[in-house]
Simulated scan of single mutants.
Amino acid sequence: MRNLLAERLSGYAPRQLALDYPEAGVLVPVTNNHRQPEIIFTLRSDNLKTHRGQVSFPGGRRDLTDSSLEATALRECHEEIGLPPEQVHIIAPLSQVMSRYGILVTPYVGVVPEDYPLVGNPAEIESIFQVPIDFFLEDQRERTDALSFLNHTFYVPCYRWERYQIWGLSAVILVDFLNAVYEAKIDLLEPPQR
């Protein structure tokens, strides 16, 4: 899986947003399974101040002690789901995105063991779940949300996997990953034709 992702992301130029906002780093964890790779998501606790009860990638705001946003993503991943940095092979960053709370988020694609025992931090994470990448490539979205950002409207898919809804910022990051790695051609600038 590492070689496949590295090859497909080698020519990818992630979009950088020239905005002066607080920063965060998140991990897009892909399991190391060539037959059926999965992406790991979290469901955030209802007790949190922001994004409570929402599906997200593990990650969070940059601390002053973090040497880089990649280090932020790895630290937060360890804190949130118990995955140590040495178990993650970072491949490449994806395009930066802006959260509705004014946080500039840089996602990093990382390959992780498919059978590592993940444990959610109960103060932050309600549950951890995995979704096969093939599910998203079928683009069986539940709905499309029209989201505004910098005078543009983006048509962002919402996917349902079991009891979870993957939408908003997480869906934007997910679509960037699917388009960059699998040439999914999911267009966020035009509403879907169905």
Rank of each mutant, 00 (worst) to 15 (best):
L5R: 01
E7N: 11
E7I: 07
E7T: 14
E7Y: 07
S10Y: 03
S10L: 03
G11K: 05
P14G: 11
L17K: 06
L19E: 15
L19I: 15
D20L: 12
D20Q: 13
D20Y: 11
Y21K: 10
A24V: 10
A24T: 09
A24H: 07
A24I: 08
G25N: 06
G25E: 03
V26T: 14
V26G: 02
P29C: 03
P29G: 03
P29S: 07
V30Q: 07
N32T: 01
N32E: 05
N32P: 00
H34Q: 08
R35I: 12
P37T: 00
E38C: 12
I39G: 09
I39M: 12
T42S: 07
S45A: 11
S45W: 04
D46Q: 10
D46K: 07
N47I: 04
N47Q: 12
L48T: 12
K49S: 09
K49M: 08
T50R: 13
T50W: 11
H51C: 05
H51Y: 13
S56G: 08
S56L: 14
S56H: 11
S56V: 09
G59W: 02
G59E: 07
G60R: 03
R61H: 01
R61G: 09
R62F: 01
D63R: 15
D63Y: 14
D63L: 15
L64R: 10
D66V: 11
D66I: 08
S67R: 12
S68N: 04
S68C: 06
E70C: 14
A71N: 04
A71E: 10
T72W: 02
A73E: 11
L74V: 09
L74C: 08
L74H: 08
E76D: 08
E76R: 14
E76P: 00
C77E: 05
L83F: 04
P84R: 06
E86T: 08
E86D: 15
I90G: 00
I91Y: 01
A92R: 09
A92W: 02
S95F: 04
S95E: 02
Q96A: 12
V97R: 04
M98I: 15
M98Q: 13
S99M: 07
L104N: 13
V105K: 02
V105S: 06
T106L: 14
P107S: 06
Y108T: 03
Y108V: 02
V109A: 06
V109K: 01
G110C: 08
V112H: 09
P113K: 12
E114L: 05
E114R: 11
P117R: 02
L118S: 05
P122F: 00
E124C: 04
E124V: 05
E124N: 11
S127A: 14
I128M: 11
Q130P: 01
Q130D: 10
V131Y: 10
V131D: 12
P132E: 10
I133N: 08
I133H: 08
